[in-house]
Amino acid sequence: MKVLLVAEYRQGRLAESTSELLGFADALGGDVSMALVGSPDQLPGFDGRLHFADAGIYGEYDSELHKRLLLQAVEAETPDLIVFMHSSYGWDLAPRISAALGVALLSGVAGMDGDGFTTRCCNGKMRRTVTAMTSPAVLTLLPGAFPSVQPEGVSPELHPMAASGVPVVEFIRYEPPSTGGIDLTRSDVIVCAGRGVGSREKVGLVRALADALGGEVGATRPVVDAGWLEHGRQIGSTGQSVSPGLYVACGVSGAIQHLAGMKGSGFVIALNTDRDAPIVEVADLLVVADLEEFLPLLTAKLGS
């Protein structure tokens, strides 16, 4: 089995997820090579063939240019699998490679199962086994699904990639994350409001519990998108990453992107009507209850 891993680099940094790509390759075994449009000053710790192009020359991510560069690495390696992370880079570029080659793409791979791969679906509640009917096949890996492997003291053997052309999509600027001055990373206690809270008015029930515990209020993405709470309170892969000693998840299903931002928490209590919600996987205590009835009872008990 020949595996081509596609590493990511942005704004002067090699992505940490490179170690997960290597972890996946380790679990699978076989002949491993890598491709990267990055910086010569930040090469991955990897002792194989690295198909490399300098981001200093090629500029910020341009899907057309990166596609053409990568297709060269594919041609040189004739891999069985071309592997990305399921990230803003991977889900943007992987389908382009799949379409250019006319081959299968399996997205969000979380494990292996016989000659297929498992992926999560239905909000993380269910899983599927999917098999590619083409060779090569393209995969994107679910972040956090495979262990990190970081070889030290090794360096890759460089093979240059080159392409030309004007970008179709013009890069204008980056915008840093804005939290509106809310810093949840220092809180010891966070009570998080999920969509299960039901309405803007009922967010007050969550705030009352947070106050009773002397903690901060956090939120899932749908809650901030609906304007029930400020954007700066969002926890998850596109919000803040927190690790309080106590995390109370109220009406939070536990989507993988939310878990990414809170899995470092100490003790996790989940309040949910659905005892199968994926949040149970990280909860030390799951209370099966309707929030509207339960939160006032709980807050009252804490006060007394």
Binding site: K125, R127, T129, M133, E281, L285, L286
Partner: peptide, 27 residues
């Protein structure tokens, strides 16, 4: 280009304790 051979519950094994029952008592 792909074939699906399995669909099942993701074994969301509770990592901790699950509490159900009368709400005032649970509270």
């Amino acid at each position: 280009l792909t074939r699906v051979s399995g669909f099942s519950h993701h074994v969301s094994r509770p990592s901790g304790v699950v509490l159900e029952g009368r709400l005032d008592e649970l509270a």
